[in-house]
Computed example of a mutant assay.
Amino acid sequence: MRFLLRLLSPLIALVVAAVGVVTTIEVVTAWLAPSSSPLIVPWPTWRAGLEGLTWSSATVRTIAIVIGVVGLLVLLVGLVARRHDVELTDPVPEVTVTTSPRSLARAVGHEVRSHADVVSASVVASQKKVVVKAGTLDAPDAVRGAVRERVDEVLARLPLAHRPRVSVSVAPTKGVK
């Protein structure tokens, strides 16, 4: 969602800037040569068409609903794209301590990869869940318990405000040559 927000923000800014430039050109043209026709936007024709509309017209209501829905979608994208930090226990009431999910995943991944039987590991973390996918040359069932124990040890050492759920999967990998 953050990618979508980073994409939408400049696009909306460009549209607003373009409307501002076109409006400025039309206003300056109307001031300097009021009798000439408009340069870019046929605003006299639009004004004549809009004079017959009222607030209770179906066209006005439809446009208002569409603008409202688009505005709510942009607001929703903005709210969903916020940072999802992992809360740690506060040392004192005046101080709030957080870490990023990436840092938590890095700490867990470092510990999992230090296990002798783990060849590769991938860790994804959030405030609610830690997902570990490890690869081993040995029997996966034998390694899964040891990896789970290491993950639990790391999470116990960290001052997490809420302990996340842990999901560990271990799969056999082909031998490295």
Score class of each variant (00 low, 15 high):
S120P: 06
D138L: 09
H162M: 08
V74H: 00
L137Q: 07
S35I: 13
A139Y: 07
R165H: 10
V123C: 04
E87G: 10
S37F: 09
P159G: 02
A105D: 03
S9N: 14
P34R: 01
V41L: 12
G78C: 11
R157H: 10
P159D: 02
A13I: 13
A142M: 06
V170K: 03
L76Q: 10
D90P: 07
L137A: 08
V80Q: 02
G175L: 11
T89W: 01
W31I: 15
V21H: 04
D138N: 09
A33E: 15
V176N: 09
H84M: 05
A33R: 15
A156G: 06
L50V: 15
V21R: 04
S103P: 05
R102C: 05
V95P: 06
T98M: 02
T96S: 11
V176G: 06
R163F: 07
A64W: 07
G78S: 12
T54W: 13
R150Y: 05
I65C: 06
L72F: 14
T136N: 04
G175C: 09
G20E: 00
A13K: 13
T136M: 02
S122E: 05
L53S: 02
S103H: 08
A156T: 14
S35N: 13
P164L: 02
D138P: 06
V151P: 03
S36T: 14
V147R: 00
A171S: 12
V66K: 05
A142G: 05
V69F: 03
V108E: 00
V124N: 05
V28C: 14
V74L: 08
D141Q: 09
L4T: 15
V112D: 01
S35R: 15
R82W: 09
V60S: 01
W55S: 14
D141Y: 07
P93R: 00
P44K: 02
